[in-house]
Each structure stands twice: as structure tokens, then as C-alpha cells.
Nucleic acid binder design. Structure first.
Lengths: 339, 339
DNA sequence: AGAGTGACCGAAAAGGTTTTCGTACAGTTT
DNA sequence: AAACTGTACGAAAACCTTTTCGGTCACTCT
């Protein structure tokens, strides 16, 4: 009732209930060797006094804090968030809580946060990057398991989970070929990024395997609508027979859509367009709706948490290496005319 | 060197350095009454053994965990993330870490997380909502301070920080009037949402104060591009002389831009358009760039953390009530022709 | 020489919980 | 009546650190 400033402890509960702290503990935790009458009495008192056990003390004793660290390079959110959500979800019902640390891409800040996490005795760490470029490992001599999500570690002894961008590029091409397209162009973002390179690799490989040749050079510059518009204008000018474009991101694809429309062509009848990331707000608002590749980031986060969890439970040596998780195609109106 | 499975404790450091744990503790924490020679010796041993102090034990003793809880309704990210970043930033250099809890809009899950936070003895909680609609209070009989961000608490005894949407609506109108516009329409999202209502209130108030009348009815339906396009088409049909549109969100504004363009008019010459939220990816990619209202969410998160921090330090009764934080106008090409 | 003064260090308690082990006692068996 | 069984409970140790307070020792001052 009264907002009690001093937190009520197990000792308080025990003394009010007229038992020892040992018995009170056993009663509240459903342990053996406590009479039903006492158990219920203790429970009643605990409830009445508003007792909440001190997890710090419990952790100190059990040598496990029941917490993990989420070490992110940048809370920019586009890619990090679904992963966090998936991880949260995986631990969900369990009694695990997560520390969120944003290193802001700064190495010393990351080190600082890592230290903080270690002093707080987290049971494990998920490092989630903001791009699929590989990043520096946290090192091998940590007392707790680490899983890298999205951005893989550069040390193959670490376990990394990252989406299979190559397969994403292939998926896009296969879908367009299935739709009967043959003159397929490719416009993507920053060519120094692994995401751009890998998706392009998949694009080229699938084209070659099907015996097709790309329509025009691969155009790689920036992850922006503006670049999508500009590149498309050039591509359409040079290749009048172009009938499909694989974009390296949804944002680029939005620019592509605009430019195709500006040129007097229609989507998907004249030109089919396919994006990448399946960023809900961009793909559903587009006209027509944008077919896109979904990296299943939430599942990636889920898997990362699952792997970490397993590494935390078994002490046995955990898995390692870079795992490429499957991506999937989400079909909308930009590649298939509805009805 | 060797990945030591058993964590090294202060006792280990002390025994290797040939001192008592008390002295070791004092040495590492820069306390009085320890000879310089011993201090450096202890420090050297601690470094060599890879000692990291156990914050759990320290917290247990000091009765403060140095952690806070971030209780969010939905990790959707659009509004939550900047706030989290601001909060992270405010604690930044300090030794405070944050637990991230996603209740997914579920009341019992929120209660579960709240309990978890309490057992972990967090020193305070920031509740960050995903809309500006008010939400149920966590209650008054919590042993720690709570600050509500974005979504205000429905209990005026709580402290809530939320952006001043009314003023945002006014700001938009004033800017358009300054640009010489007189026939101003308003298209916004879900009318059951406080965000839509408040922005509209500001819009109408500013119009009235300036002696103008809105161009057409206020059109409120969904926070989508599609709705922006549809509503704009109707509005332009009914009011050929319309020369500006205030949109309730950037997404709606993007639809407005498209529809204006489709009608053969140009932005901003024929029709000026202004969005809301200043969502970077939407406003910069638009053509022309979209003038928008920025809610300063990062600052809001920063302020929330600052308030919480103060409430955690002083035991004196903290502030309360709903604080409306100022928003700002960000001007781009959709309202002012460049050059 | 005796007293006084610092500087340095260690023993012990505290924080809240869980677990182990021992004790008391009621009831049952020879 | 003696020995045994099993149930219910409590004392105490353990987890790791910090802080208080008392103690030791080498000095300096009268």
C-alpha cells in the first residue's frame, strides 16, 4: 500500500511469516522439504509485503546473470531492429534480459561497452552490425560465447550469421526469367560494400547459368532513390529493349519505378522491377507494389539468439564459421501484373 | 593468455599480489591508505590475470545497479529508435547500461518485463511508446522513478515527455503563409490517433488566427502513400486553386507529391507540400526534397534520460505532468524553389 | 625513553539469496 | 522400550566486493 522506500527482503518475509530465510527461500521456489501450510503462509506474506527477489544476489551465487549483451554498431535501425526483435523473441518466455549497447561505429566506445558487459557478467553477447561487410572480431579469449549477426566476424573461429546475398541476387534473376524477361539490367548501390558485391555476384552468376547476358553494364553507385532514377534514365536510353531491372535495394528500386514511369513506360508490362530488403514502408507504398528480396532478418536474429543460447548452455565448443541464411522472394505487382 | 574458464576474482589478484582483498580493492579503486608500490603491483597483477570486477557484487553492496530499463511497446523503430539513441547518448560516458524490453503492445508481457526489471533492481525506467496516444500508467507504487517518452502516461502524477504536435501543425501553416500560400489543404492519417488530431488542431488554429480558411475539408484516413495520393486527387479536383498541402506524415506527403505531379502541376511552383516527421529516407529521396516537421525525437530521448537521471539521484519528488517538447521546421525544395 | 603521530595494511561485516547438512521430532517397527 | 524412518525446519557457508575500524610499525618530538 504505502510506497515503501526500503525494499522488502527475504529476511523480512521470513521474520513476518515466522520462519527462517532458508525455509522462506525454499517455500517461494517450490523446493522440497517444506510443509504445505508453511509454503502457502510464506507465499501470502511475500505477496502482501510486495516482495520481489533480488536477482543480483541470486546471480552472484549461481554464477549466471541470466543476461546477454546486444552490441550494435549503429542504432540506425533499418537492419539492426528486426534482428533485435528476433533475438528478443527467441529469449522471449525465458528469464533472459538483454543489455542494449550502441557503439556508434566507434572502436573505443565498443571496447568500453564490452568491458561494461563483462563486469556485469552477461552470459553471452550478440554483435550485430549495420552492414554485411565483415568486421573485426572481439577476440577469442573472452570468457563467454559471442555470436555475430548480419556483419560477420573476420575471424573464422567465430560464429557468424549473415544473409545469403548471393542467393538473393540469383533469386531475383530466376524470378524475372520465369516471368519471361530476357533483357535484364542491374542497378545497385555502393560498390565497395559486400552487400552490393554479393548481390551482383548472384545476379551475374544466375544470368550466366541461364545463358543470358546482362542488359548493359552493372551500374553501382549509391543506395539512393536519386541514383536509381539517374541510372535508370541512362539505362533506358541506351537499351530501348530493356524489359527488367534488378535493383540493389528497395530505395533504389523506388527511384527506378519513378524513372520508368517518367519515360512513358509502364511497370510491369514494359519493364519489371525488383527491389531488395522488402522494406515494408517502401514496397507497399510503391505503385505498383514492389517485388523484393526479404533477408529474413527477424529469423536471423532468432537464430543468433538460439545459437548463443546453446553455446551458453553446453560448455562444449560451439559452432563456428560464417553461416549464410536463406533469403526469400516476395512477389508484388512490379513483376507480375495482377489479373 | 589461456582462455580461462573460471573467472578471476579479486581474491585471486590479492593472493598473487601478496595483499589482502581489502587492500587490493582499495588499490584498484584509487582509495586512500595504500602505498604507491603496492598499488602499482596490484594493478599489474590485475592486468596480467585479466581481472574484471564483478559488478553484481558491487551493486548488491551499493544498493544501486547502475542500470535502467527501456520498456518499449513495439520495436517498430520508426519513433522508438531515435529516442533510445538519445537516451543512450545521455547516459553515454556514465557507467549506466540499459535493459531493452519489447512488450509488443501486450499488457501481460509488459507486466512480465516490468517484474523482471524490478528483480534486476534497475535504478529507473523509461517507457517509450510507439504513438503519441496516452497509455496506461505503470502505477505510483514503484520503488524507482519512471519517465514516459513519446506516449504520455494517462496519470498526471507521472512525468511524460511528448512532442508538441499542435505546435507542429501551426509551424507548417505559418511557413506556408510566409511563402505566400493562401489556399491550403490538409491531408492526414488515422483520425482516431492523437498525433493526427493534435497536428490538425494546430493546423486549424493557425489558419484561423491568420484569418485564412482551409481549402476543403480536413481529410483524415490512413498513414499511407496510397491515401496521400487518393486524397490529393480528390482535393485537386474539387479545389483547382489549391496552392499548398499540409500532410500529416512524410509517407502521406510522398503520396501527395506523386499525385500533384500526376495532375500536371509542379511542386513547389503550383502546389507547395509539407510533410511531418522528417524521416530522412523519405524526405531526401523525394523530388523535390520534402519540407517537413522534425519532432526532435533524439532530443526527447535525451531529455527523458536526463530527467530520469535526476530523479534517480535526488530522492526529492521529481517533476510530473505532460511536457510538450518543441518541434522544428526543416525546409527543403517542396515549399521553396531553390534559387 | 616514552609518548605521540602518521602511513599502511588486514580482519570482518555487510549486501540478499540459495544450498547443504545437521537436528528435532513424530511416527513406525522390532 | 529401544531402534529406526522420514518429514520439516534452521544454521551456516557460499557468491564477490567495499567499507569501517582497529592494529602494526617506523618515525618524530619532548
Amino acid at each position: 500500500m504505502a510506497t515503501n522506500p526500503s525494499v522488502v527482503t527475504l529476511k523480512d518475509v521470513a521474520s513476518v511469516a515466522g520462519v527462517s530465510v532458508a525455509t522462506a527461500s525454499k517455500a517461494l521456489n517450490g523446493r522440497q522439504d517444506v510443509a504445505e501450510a508453511t509454503r502457502s503462509r510464506v507465499a501470502e506474506v511475500a505477496g502482501r509485503l510486495g516482495f520481489t527477489r533480488n536477482e543480483l544476489a541470486r546471480s552472484l551465487l549461481s554464477q549466471r546473470s541470466g543476461t546477454i549483451g546486444l552490441l550494435t554498431g549503429d542504432l540506425d535501425g533499418r537492419f539492426v531492429l528486426p534482428i533485435l526483435r528476433g533475438a528478443e523473441d527467441a529469449f522471449g518466455a525465458g528469464a533472459i534480459d538483454a543489455f542494449l549497447c550502441d557503439a556508434r561505429g566507434d572502436v573505443i566506445r565498443e571496447q568500453h561497452h564490452l568491458n561494461a558487459l563483462l563486469t556485469r557478467r552477461v552470459d553471452g553477447i550478440i554483435v550485430v552490425g549495420r552492414s554485411t561487410d565483415s568486421r573485426a572480431s572481439l577476440g577469442q579469449n573472452l570468457p563467454i560465447p559471442v555470436v555475430y549477426a548480419y556483419a560477420p566476424s573476420d575471424d573464422p573461429r567465430d560464429l557468424s550469421l549473415t544473409p545469403d546475398n548471393v542467393s538473393g541476387g540469383e533469386l531475383a534473376v530466376h524470378h524475372l526469367l520465369d516471368c519471361g524477361r530476357t533483357r535484364i539490367g542491374h542497378i545497385t548501390g555502393d560498390p565497395t560494400r559486400a552487400a552490393a558485391q554479393d548481390r551482383t555476384t548472384g545476379f551475374l552468376r544466375a544470368m550466366e547459368e541461364s545463358g543470358s547476358t546482362p542488359c548493359g553494364e552493372v551500374m553501382a553507385s549509391a543506395w539512393s532513390e536519386q541514383w536509381g532514377r539517374d541510372a535508370t534514365a541512362v539505362l533506358l536510353e541506351q537499351h530501348r529493349d530493356l524489359d527488367a531491372i534488378v535493383a540493389g535495394s528497395d530505395l533504389i528500386a523506388r527511384g527506378v519505378l519513378d524513372a520508368v514511369r517518367d519515360s512513358g513506360r509502364t511497370v510491369p508490362d514494359d519493364v519489371a522491377v525488383i527491389g531488395y530488403d522488402n522494406w515494408s514502408v517502401l514496397v507497399t507504398g510503391a505503385r505498383p507494389g514492389l517485388t523484393s528480396i526479404d533477408s529474413n532478418l527477424e529469423r536471423l536474429g532468432h537464430e543468433a539468439a538460439r545459437h548463443l543460447f546453446r553455446a551458453m548452455s553446453d560448455d562444449d565448443e560451439s559452432a563456428h564459421g560464417v553461416h549464410h541464411l536463406p533469403v526469400r522472394l516476395v512477389i508484388r505487382g512490379s513483376t507480375i501484373a495482377h489479373r
